[in-house]
C-alpha cells in the first residue's frame, strides 16, 4: 500500500510560551518545535502498515522552512519521500485552507490510505483531516485507537474512542482518511542508519500551480477564520499558592487541607 501520512510541526507546549507583539500568535523566536504528538503515532502506524503490506510511506507537511526538520525525522524513521508545502501562499491558513492544500498534494501523490493525528496541539481544530477526506470523497474516522487493514487493502477494521471509556469497532472501505489518537501504538526511534539514509531521500516542494491550486483558496486568503488575539486566560479566582521549600510547603498544605478545606 502507498500510505500518505500528514504531520504538523507544533510548538513544544512544555516550553515557555510568549505572545508575539502583534498579539495574534506566539513569539516564535527561541521557541522549540516538535512533531505534533498524535501525528507521531500516525507516522508509526503508517510505517507498520507499509511494512506489513510491502508498500511505502510518503510524509506530507504544510509549514515554513523549519518544518524540514520534522520531515527529515519522518524520513529517518522510514518514510520513502517527503512533500513539504512550504510556498508562502500555503501559510497562515485555517483548517479549510490547509485541507485544500493537503488534499491536492495527496491526490497528486496517489495514496491508498491517509493517516494523520486527530488534533494539533497548537490550534487544535481537530477538523483538518476530516475536511481532507471530504475533498477526496473518502470515508474517514476521528480518534482511532486501533487499525487493521483487511482484504488486501479493500477495507479496514477501525477501533474508535467514544466518551466514558468505551470504544466502537467498525469497518469502512479503503481508501480512507484515518485520524489516530495518541496511544494507538509505540512509536519507534530513528536508527543512526535511518538518519544517514534520510539525508539522501527526496523532499518535494510543489508550488500551488504545480498542484493546480489557486492561491485565493489557500493560506489566510482561503480561510473562513481569522485569529484576532491570543492571550493567557484569566486565572479566575485561581489557586491559593503555597510557597517555601518542599517540606515547609507540604506541611502548610496539609494544615490547610485539614483546617481550611476540611478534606483530610
Amino acid at each position: 500500500m502507498r500510505i500518505a501520512v500528514c504531520i504538523k510541526q507544533v510548538p513544544d507546549t512544555e516550553a515557555r510560551l510568549r505572545v508575539a507583539k502583534d498579539g495574534k500568535w506566539l513569539d516564535e523566536e527561541d521557541l522549540r518545535f516538535v512533531i505534533n504528538e498524535s501525528d507521531e503515532y500516525a507516522v508509526e502506524e503508517a510505517l507498520t502498515w507499509a511494512e506489513k503490506t510491502g508498500g511505502e510511506v510518503v510524509i506530507i507537511s504544510l509549514g515554513p522552512a523549519r518544518v524540514q526538520e520534522a520531515l527529515r525525522k519522518g524520513l529517518a524513521l522510514g518514510a520513502a519521500k517527503a512533500i513539504h508545502l512550504v510556498d508562502e501562499a500555503y501559510q497562515g491558513g485555517d483548517a479549510r485552507a490547509t485541507a485544500v492544500a493537503l488534499a491536492a498534494a495527496i491526490q497528486n501523490e496517489g495514496a491508498d490510505l491517509v493517516l494523520t493525528g486527530s488534533q494539533s496541539d497548537d490550534v487544535g481544530y481537530g477538523s483538518t483531516a476530516s475536511l481532507v477526506a471530504g475533498h477526496l470523497g473518502w470515508p474517514h474516522a476521528w480518534l482511532v485507537m486501533g487499525l487493521e487493514v483487511e482484504e488486501g487493502g479493500a477495507t479496514a477494521k477501525v477501533t474508535r474512542e467514544m466518551e466514558s471509556g468505551m470504544n466502537e469497532v467498525f469497518r469502512l472501505t479503503l481508501p480512507a482518511v484515518i485520524e489516530v489518537q495518541a496511544g494507538i501504538n509505540h512509536p519507534r526511534y530513528a536508527s543512526l542508519k535511518g538518519i544517514m539514509k534520510a539525508k539522501r531521500k527526496p523532499i518535494d516542494k510543489p508550488t500551488p500551480a504545480e498542484l493546480g491550486l489557486d492561491a485565493a483558496s489557500l493560506g489566510a486568503a482561503g480561510s473562513h477564520l481569522e485569529i484576532l488575539e491570543i492571550a493567557f486566560p484569566d486565572s479566575g479566582d485561581g489557586a491559593q499558592m503555597i510557597e517555601g521549600d518542599a517540606a515547609a510547603a507540604a506541611k502548610e498544605l496539609v494544615e490547610k487541607l485539614q483546617k481550611e478545606a476540611r478534606v483530610l
Binding site: P11, T13, D121, G124, L225, E226, I227, L228, I230, A231
Partner: peptide, 20 residues
Amino acid sequence: LIWQRPILGGKLQARVRVKT
C-alpha cells in the same frame, strides 16, 4: 461575533472571527 476557544492545550485562549 467573536468566539473564544482554547489553544495550546488550554494554556492560552484565542479570540477568533469568521470573516466569510
